[in-house]
Simulated assay, not measured.
Amino acid sequence: MPAQARRIALPRAARFGIGIAVTGASFALPLVTAMGAQAHTAPGAPAASVAQHTAAAEAKPAVPAAAFDSYRVVSGDTLTTIADAKQVEGGWHALYERNRSVVGANPDLIFPGQQLSLAADAAKPAAPAAPAKPAAPVTQSAAAAADTQLQVKTEAAKPGAQLQTQVQSAAPAKPAAPAPVAPAKPAAPVAATSGYVAPLANPVLGEAYGVAGSMWASGHHTGQDFVASTGTPLRAVANGVVVKAGNGGAYGNEVEIKLADGKYAQYAHLSVIGVKVGQTVTVGQRLGLSGATGNVTGPHLHFEIRTGPEYGSDINPVAYLRAHGVAL
């Protein structure tokens, strides 16, 4: 009897073509039963490997929970700005008490790299996080159904004809790209848009610049006084470098910084000095605390703007700050 063409159709969801030319050699074709054909993956790519590859590709790394109970100091930080930005209950005083062993005796001397505790119970060890559940393994049959479509076509050879089997493989679906994590928003800067601020918060003007009088060696007031009780935080009016930090005679404890435009800002009669000579400061950074040291009749801030680092090169500090957008 002549050989009959024989076709075995599988479901469309699992189509795969197999084509192998056989000439002059014996070839054994696996039998496909009427109960349903079982797909065999090509040598070198077993179904188990496909399953493992699919599971590894689709597994997403666990994102560690963000820690909100500590903060690492960066250049320009003060306890006040950190407490305001992180909304620490009790303000900078509470923040200082929690970190006295790190900061030391002077709350104005904090340095980049110091790790500060923000929460009152930050010292308590955190409960260990529950281990992540492993991804469910992908079975061999599931991987074969998801990644491979089979179509088996077998043709019995007529006399002199060749037996052909065609194999086609569908490309595996690409795993979905992980959703990007939005970066944390930085804390709002202390500086004004002009890059300058007043030498202290909520400034109230006192004795004006240029007032004549015999109490001053130059015959006039060389700076602008600001009303400030002892312990009021004083801040850099702009970016600069500290050129003086110590006792200034009649000025008492003083700090002077060279600003980026070449001018010099001097702060006098301080009760606490919070910076060192050579230190770079940023606009709004705390320099120390106001007081009544030196030749004074009461606590206040004596503030000067100079064209040079020494006494006698003063200019009107209020006019200078207003020219840079500071409201006084």
Rank of each mutant, 00 (worst) to 15 (best):
P61Y: 02
V281H: 08
V275E: 09
Y264D: 00
E304F: 02
T139K: 09
G19V: 10
G274C: 13
A5Y: 08
P175L: 08
G252R: 06
D84E: 12
T81A: 13
G240P: 08
G298E: 06
P137D: 08
L10Y: 11
G160R: 09
I8P: 04
V283L: 00
M35T: 14
P125Y: 00
W216V: 09
A130H: 02
K263C: 00
K263M: 03
E58K: 09
P299S: 15
L328Q: 04
V190F: 12
A14C: 08
G44H: 01
P159I: 06
S271Y: 03
A171S: 11
W216P: 06
E207K: 04
T165E: 03
A13E: 15
Q115W: 00
F111Q: 12
W92I: 02
A238M: 08
P46Q: 11
A59W: 10
G113L: 00
F303E: 06
G248V: 04
Q285E: 15
D108T: 10
A65D: 04
A56Y: 01
K124A: 11
K185A: 15
P107L: 11
A9Y: 14
S70L: 03
V243M: 01
Q151S: 14
Q279V: 12
T293I: 12
G160K: 10
V277N: 04
A67N: 09
T41A: 13
Q87F: 02
A47V: 14
D108F: 14
Y267L: 05
G113H: 01
Q168M: 07
S229K: 12
V283N: 06
A238P: 05
S290M: 05
L234F: 10
V102R: 10
N99Q: 10
V211R: 12
N295A: 15
L118V: 06
G298V: 06
L234S: 09
V181E: 09
V227R: 12
K86E: 15
Q279R: 12
H93D: 15
A327M: 03
A170Q: 14
A37G: 14
L205Q: 10
A28G: 12
K276A: 15
A85T: 12
A319G: 14
E97Q: 15
A3Y: 10
R306T: 03
G91L: 09
R306Q: 03
Q87M: 02
P11C: 07
P107E: 11
P112Q: 03
G44Q: 03
G231W: 08
R235W: 06
A184S: 14
A144V: 15
A83N: 02
T297F: 08
G195W: 04
P189I: 08
T297D: 11
L118F: 02
S141Y: 02
R72K: 06
N247H: 11
A3S: 15
Q164I: 04
A127N: 00
L321N: 06
A122S: 13
P189G: 07
R15S: 13
P134I: 04
L116T: 03
I315E: 06
E254C: 04
A188Q: 06
S141G: 04
G113A: 00
P180Y: 03
A144D: 13
V152E: 12
K60I: 06
V197M: 00
S218Q: 14
A42K: 12
A39Y: 10
S271T: 03
F111W: 08
Q115E: 05
H269K: 04
A265F: 00
R286D: 14
D261H: 01
A265N: 00
N202Q: 09
A9W: 13
